[in-house]
Design a protein around this nucleic acid. Structure first.
Length: 175
DNA sequence: CGAGTTTGACCAGCGC
DNA sequence: GCGCTGGTCAAACTCG
């Protein structure tokens, strides 16, 4: 189907490479606490992943973090906007953001009680790239796990890369 | 008919 | 204090 390329990561604090993208994606790194960094296995080329534990500012209590405290962002090269990661997402908003001619889409996990959110937007500088940001941790199994496994086996390995990455995100959750 | 999408409005945070 | 921007809500709409 489509080729995915996890070529760039978001939130790399002082990596000189792709900083421009990071800046426009979210608030400056200073407001974000980088909790852990994990890298993918040997699959995929140069794939790395950074997860973040961000202190939610909604509540005035500073030590308290909401259940959706983890945020993961990455950039993929894909022809499609929304990657099927096995979860069911329900779109709840669309906005045009600054420094990006493309719209940003907002999704929520449609599973009951799961507050995970996802933002999807095209890279304003290179529309071939899709920036996906996951916020929160799933508290349930992947609804379409069987289907997805079947899909992976019947398509090329790029999709498996995607699946593997999402698994990494899932594993990285503190539960 | 129910689930999901679209889209404008509303609200809160932040910088000036 | 005001305006800008990002994020969310909710009613209307579409599709299976």
């Amino acid at each position: 189907m489509d080729n995915f390329d996890f070529s760039n990561l978001m939130f790399d604090d002082d990596e000189g490479g792709n900083t421009g993208l990071v800046q426009e994606e979210t608030s400056p790194p200073t407001s974000i606490v980088s909790s852990e960094t994990l890298t993918g296995e040997s699959r995929g080329s140069g794939r790395a992943l950074t997860t973040l534990s961000k202190k939610e500012s909604t509540g005035s209590k500073d030590g308290e973090t909401k259940e959706s405290g983890h945020r993961v962002a990455f950039r993929t090269r894909s022809k499609i906007d929304v990657m099927d990661d096995g979860y069911k997402w329900r779109k709840y908003g669309k906005k045009s953001v600054k420094n990006n001619i493309n719209k940003r889409n907002y999704y929520k996990c449609s599973s009951e009680g799961c507050m995970v959110k996802k933002r999807v937007e095209r890279d304003g500088k290179d529309a071939a790239y899709v920036i996906t940001t996951y916020e929160g941790v799933h508290n349930h199994e992947i609804p379409s796990h069987v289907y997805y496994s079947d899909m992976v086996s019947s398509h090329d390995h790029d999709n498996w890369n995607q699946y593997s990455l999402l698994q990494s995100i899932h594993i990285s959750s503190p539960s």
